[in-house]
Protein backbone atom coordinates (compact mmCIF):
# COMPACT_ATOMS: atom_id res chain seq x y z
CA UNK A 1 0.00 0.00 0.00
CA UNK A 2 1.39 3.41 -0.98
CA UNK A 3 1.96 6.38 1.24
CA UNK A 4 0.38 9.81 1.35
CA UNK A 5 2.06 13.13 2.19
CA UNK A 6 0.67 16.52 3.21
CA UNK A 7 2.59 19.65 2.14
CA UNK A 8 1.88 22.70 4.32
CA UNK A 9 3.17 26.06 3.05
CA UNK A 10 1.47 29.40 2.39
CA UNK A 11 3.41 29.64 -0.88
CA UNK A 12 1.84 27.64 -3.70
CA UNK A 13 5.15 27.95 -5.54
CA UNK A 14 6.99 26.33 -2.65
CA UNK A 15 4.44 23.50 -2.45
CA UNK A 16 5.02 22.79 -6.15
CA UNK A 17 8.81 22.90 -5.68
CA UNK A 18 8.63 20.48 -2.76
CA UNK A 19 6.42 18.14 -4.79
CA UNK A 20 8.88 18.30 -7.69
CA UNK A 21 11.82 17.70 -5.34
CA UNK A 22 10.12 14.59 -3.97
CA UNK A 23 9.77 13.20 -7.48
CA UNK A 24 13.37 14.13 -8.37
CA UNK A 25 14.55 12.46 -5.17
CA UNK A 26 12.78 9.28 -6.27
CA UNK A 27 10.30 9.43 -3.40
CA UNK A 28 6.90 8.42 -4.73
CA UNK A 29 3.69 9.09 -2.82
CA UNK A 30 0.28 7.82 -3.87
CA UNK A 31 -1.30 11.13 -2.93
CA UNK A 32 0.16 14.58 -2.30
CA UNK A 33 -2.27 16.72 -0.30
CA UNK A 34 -1.69 20.46 0.12
CA UNK A 35 -2.59 23.06 2.75
CA UNK A 36 -1.85 26.80 2.95
CA UNK A 37 -1.56 27.08 6.74
CA UNK A 38 -1.87 25.10 9.96
CA UNK A 39 -5.65 25.35 10.12
CA UNK A 40 -6.05 23.91 6.65
CA UNK A 41 -3.52 21.21 7.51
CA UNK A 42 -5.50 20.11 10.55
CA UNK A 43 -8.64 19.86 8.42
CA UNK A 44 -6.83 17.65 5.89
CA UNK A 45 -5.41 15.42 8.61
CA UNK A 46 -8.86 14.93 10.15
CA UNK A 47 -10.29 13.87 6.78
CA UNK A 48 -7.53 12.08 4.85
CA UNK A 49 -5.11 9.26 5.56
CA UNK A 50 -1.69 10.94 5.75
CA UNK A 51 1.60 9.18 6.53
CA UNK A 52 3.86 12.22 6.93
CA UNK A 53 3.55 16.02 6.93
CA UNK A 54 6.12 18.43 5.49
CA UNK A 55 5.41 21.83 7.03
CA UNK A 56 6.67 25.40 6.83
CA UNK A 57 6.92 27.43 10.06
CA UNK A 58 6.16 31.06 9.10
CA UNK A 59 2.58 31.03 7.82
CA UNK A 60 -0.52 33.22 8.29
CA UNK A 61 -3.56 32.23 10.40
CA UNK A 62 -1.84 29.29 12.14
CA UNK A 63 1.94 28.96 11.88
CA UNK A 64 3.93 25.72 11.98
CA UNK A 65 4.61 25.86 15.73
CA UNK A 66 0.93 26.51 16.53
CA UNK A 67 0.02 23.67 14.15
CA UNK A 68 2.31 21.24 15.99
CA UNK A 69 0.88 22.31 19.35
CA UNK A 70 -2.73 21.92 18.20
CA UNK A 71 -2.03 18.59 16.47
CA UNK A 72 -0.36 17.20 19.61
CA UNK A 73 -3.65 17.66 21.46
CA UNK A 74 -5.75 15.66 19.01
CA UNK A 75 -5.54 11.91 19.67
CA UNK A 76 -6.54 10.86 16.14
CA UNK A 77 -3.66 12.68 14.45
CA UNK A 78 -1.04 13.36 17.11
CA UNK A 79 1.24 10.48 16.02
CA UNK A 80 1.52 11.51 12.36
CA UNK A 81 5.16 12.61 11.90
CA UNK A 82 5.91 16.18 10.85
CA UNK A 83 9.12 17.30 9.13
CA UNK A 84 9.69 21.06 9.13
CA UNK A 85 10.81 22.73 5.85
CA UNK A 86 11.53 26.36 6.60
CA UNK A 87 13.84 29.34 6.32
CA UNK A 88 13.92 29.23 10.13
CA UNK A 89 17.06 27.53 11.39
CA UNK A 90 17.53 29.06 14.85
CA UNK A 91 18.09 26.59 17.69
CA UNK A 92 15.26 28.14 19.73
CA UNK A 93 12.62 27.70 17.03
CA UNK A 94 13.73 24.31 15.71
CA UNK A 95 14.13 23.13 19.30
CA UNK A 96 10.59 24.21 20.10
CA UNK A 97 9.31 22.42 16.99
CA UNK A 98 11.07 19.22 18.01
CA UNK A 99 9.76 19.50 21.56
CA UNK A 100 6.27 19.60 20.06
CA UNK A 101 6.88 16.45 18.04
CA UNK A 102 8.63 17.50 14.83
CA UNK A 103 10.88 14.66 13.64
CA UNK A 104 13.42 16.85 11.87
CA UNK A 105 13.96 19.91 9.71
CA UNK A 106 15.14 20.91 6.25
CA UNK A 107 16.39 24.43 5.56
CA UNK A 108 15.15 26.38 2.55
CA UNK A 109 16.66 26.53 -0.02
CA UNK A 110 17.13 22.79 -0.43
CA UNK A 111 18.04 20.26 -3.09
CA UNK A 112 16.28 16.98 -3.95
CA UNK A 113 19.32 15.18 -2.50
CA UNK A 114 18.82 16.94 0.82
CA UNK A 115 15.13 16.02 0.83
CA UNK A 116 16.04 12.40 0.16
CA UNK A 117 18.73 12.40 2.86
CA UNK A 118 16.38 13.66 5.57
CA UNK A 119 13.01 12.29 4.49
CA UNK A 120 14.12 8.90 3.15
CA UNK A 121 14.91 7.32 6.54
CA UNK A 122 11.56 8.48 7.92
CA UNK A 123 9.51 6.53 5.40
Amino acid sequence: MGKNVLLVDDSSTMRKIIGRSLRQAGIDFDNIFEAGDGQEALAVLEKESVDIVLSDINMPNMNGIEFLREKAGRDAIKDIPVLMISTETGDDIIGEAKSLGAVGSIKKPFTPDKVNEVLGPLL
Binding site: T87, E88, T89, K107
Partner: peptide, 13 residues
Protein backbone atom coordinates in the same frame (compact mmCIF):
# COMPACT_ATOMS: atom_id res chain seq x y z
CA UNK B 1 15.60 36.95 4.85
CA UNK B 2 15.86 33.59 6.58
CA UNK B 3 19.56 33.39 5.79
CA UNK B 4 20.21 36.98 6.88
CA UNK B 5 18.41 36.26 10.11
CA UNK B 6 20.85 33.44 10.88
CA UNK B 7 23.75 35.88 11.18
CA UNK B 8 21.84 38.66 12.93
CA UNK B 9 20.08 36.44 15.48
CA UNK B 10 21.59 34.43 18.32
CA UNK B 11 19.24 31.45 18.40
CA UNK B 12 16.25 32.50 16.34
CA UNK B 13 13.65 33.99 18.65
Amino acid sequence: AGDIKTILSDKGK
